[in-house]
C-alpha cells in the first residue's frame, strides 16, 4: 500500500499526539524538573512538526494524487498470497512450535514457502526437512537454544 504525503503526515501526527499525551500523563516521582516525560515530549513535538511539514508539502504538490493507492503487486492475487504467507508462516510457528515441536513446524513452514516459489514437491520436501535439521543443529546443538521438541520428544537427541 502506498500513501501520499498528506496521509503519511496525518498518520505520524496521530502518533505524535498519542506519544505526547502518553508522555504528559507519565508519573514523575520526586517531581523532577527533567523527569521521565521531558524527552518524550521533545520527540513528540518534533514528530508533530515534521508531520505537519510533510502534510503541507503533500497538500501543495499532491494535485489529483489519491490519499492512498494499492501497490502494483496487489493486482496479482498470486503475489498477495506469497506476501501473506510470510506473516502466516510466523504466526504458524508462534502458535504451534511449543505443542508440535520445532522440527515438524519448521519443516512444514519451509515446505509451503518452497512450493509457493514453484520448487518441485519432492525437492521441496527433502530441502525442508534437511534445512530444519540444519537450523536445529546450529541453534539447539551448537548454541544450546531451547527449541521445543513437541511431539518428537520421544526421539529427542
Amino acid at each position: 500500500m502506498k500513501i501520499n504525503d498528506v496521509t503519511g503526515g496525518v498518520l505520524f501526527l496521530i502518533l505524535a499526539i498519542t506519544l505526547g499525551v502518553g508522555a504528559w500523563h507519565l508519573p514523575n516521582p520526586g517531581e523532577q524538573i527533567f523527569g521521565p516525560s521531558t524527552f518524550p515530549l521533545v520527540i513528540a513535538t518534533l514528530l508533530a512538526l515534521c508531520s505537519v511539514i510533510l502534510m503541507a508539502g503533500g497538500l501543495r504538490s499532491a494535485g489529483d494524487t489519491p490519499l492512498f493507492a494499492l501497490s502494483d503487486w496487489t493486482s496479482e492475487p498470486g503475489l498477495i498470497v506469497r506476501f501473506l504467507l510470510v506473516p502466516a508462516a510466523v504466526f504458524t510457528y508462534v502458535t504451534f512450535v511449543e505443542a508440535v515441536g520445532f522440527l515438524p513446524t519448521a519443516s512444514a513452514i519451509l515446505f509451503v514457502l518452497f512450493l509457493s516459489g514453484h520448487v518441485r514437491p519432492l525437492r521441496a520436501a527433502i530441502l525442508s526437512v534437511c534445512m530444519a535439521i540444519l537450523v536445529h543443529t546450529i541453534f539447539y546443538v551448537g548454541l544450546s537454544v531451547q527449541l521445543p521438541w513437541g511431539i518428537m520428544d520421544p526421539v529427542r537427541w
Partner: peptide, 14 residues
C-alpha cells in the same frame, strides 16, 4: 532465491 528466502526467514525466526 525462491529456495534461499524461506531459509532466511527460518533463520530470522529462530
Amino acid at each position: 532465491r525462491d529456495i534461499l528466502m524461506p531459509i532466511i526467514l527460518l533463520f530470522a525466526i529462530v
